[in-house]
Amino acid sequence: MEDWLFYLFGAIALTAALFVVLMKRVFYSALSLIICLCAIAGIYLLLEAPFIAAVQIIVYAGAIMVLFLFVIMLLDPFSGALPADKRKYLRYCALVLGAATLLLLVPLLRSYDPGGTPHDSVSATTATGSVSVLAETLFRDYLLPFEVTSVLILVAIIGVVVLAKRQT
């Protein structure tokens, strides 16, 4: 059952990712990226990370992608179709580079040895996936990085306001 669900979500994610690249209109790319993100959230659930799955849906597929769609609808109708790229060779270069990336990544990942069997004991997996353990680690061991991210977000907010404001 779990395997079956993994293959289903993986196939959905891969197909949607391909459509992100293949679609001509950016709007459709963004919509298929949302589908891809939701499928990845399903895989997170299979990997016993329910909090990450929820955050993926709420923050990624919700907030960030809505921001993207907002900007696309703000700008795209006026931009029209971009002029066709004269440099066709770039496409073949990208395919060659993609194949090279896969050829590099896959043997590297295959050589990874998880070191013993994956943890199947019920107590261990529930401990990893639970929100309370996550929160305890986040607010004890990673308190300073957590606070620094708030500064990062503040900087991003100010930067966005400065960049997007109409110069008078």
Binding site: A13, L14, A17, L18, V20, V21, C36, I40, A94, L95, L97, G98, T101, L102, L105, V106, L109
Partner: peptide
Amino acid sequence: ALLFTIGTVG
């Protein structure tokens, strides 16, 4: 790795 490669090509 497959998703990452698709993103790189994109």
